[in-house]
Amino acid sequence: MAETTVEKTAPRESGAARAAWRSRTGTRRSTRTLRLYTSVVLTGVTVLAVLVVPPLVQLDQQAVDLAAKLRPPSAAHPFGTDDVGRDLLLRCVYGLRVSLLVGVAAALTATVVGTAVGATAGALGGWVDRAVMRVVDAFSSVPHLLLGVFIVAMFRPGVWPVVASVALTHWLSTARIVRAEVLSLRARPYVDAAVSGGASRWRVAVRHLLPGVLPQAALAAVLMVPHAMWHESALSFLGLGLPTHMASLGNLIQSARGSLLAGQWWPTLFPGLFIIVPTLAVAGLAGVWRERINPRRRSELML
């Protein structure tokens, strides 16, 4: 009925109205694809820069040139130089490399731990569920950063203590998400059918419950990567994360604080942008993905 009406009135409509109608849908679609393409391109550039630049560009990121210290951005040094004359572009790429490595490793660890804990709690239910979730609550009542600082302080500075610290403070949200999904899946009749068909607890969890929560867990993992990067930067900025000689985005910003007060903006701005741009790119990608896997519940997983 509606279709026939549209067809009848369409030729009589003025050209402008039709154009407006078209352009409205056009822009709506194009913002979504624009967001997708921008995110893909930015993420791709970030990953490529991190993977390709260090082997291809045979320059020493630690090369000190005191004669050229604190130069503003120029053709020779596109991002300028820091207070001992090191090239900031190269330092930023190496810093991003370390930060991304920490981010991805920590996010993967946190997701695996969170999924295992959440799935166990949800699949077993009863007092196991209650006990595990109270432990999760107890963990999350301590501020993330404080707990992270505590864990890092127990080890010698390096990459892996930071990964452990970020991972051990971030599995909680994943565990909650996975547990909630598993609980909702567990009440479905197909789990009853599997029980009646002789499936063990393990088989029900692995065959029927985990595949159902995997998209959610993977989305949580992707959103965790920028979160973990920020956390690593915060720890490094506080001087507790990676050793100071290692270029990480947090270290770069921390060591450039002094020159910022003297009016040199470039040593802090560029590392800061290197944190923000990948974060936004990943958030955009995750947003598109979230709408794909679950169009109805958009507000559930946010960065």
């Binding site: 479905r188 009749p189 197909y190 009853d192 059918a193 599997a194 065959r207 029927h208």
Partner: peptide, 9 residues
């Protein structure tokens, strides 16, 4: 079960 949609994975 009553509802095949819900009782099939």
């Amino acid at each position: 079960f009553q509802q095949p949609r819900l009782s099939a994975d």
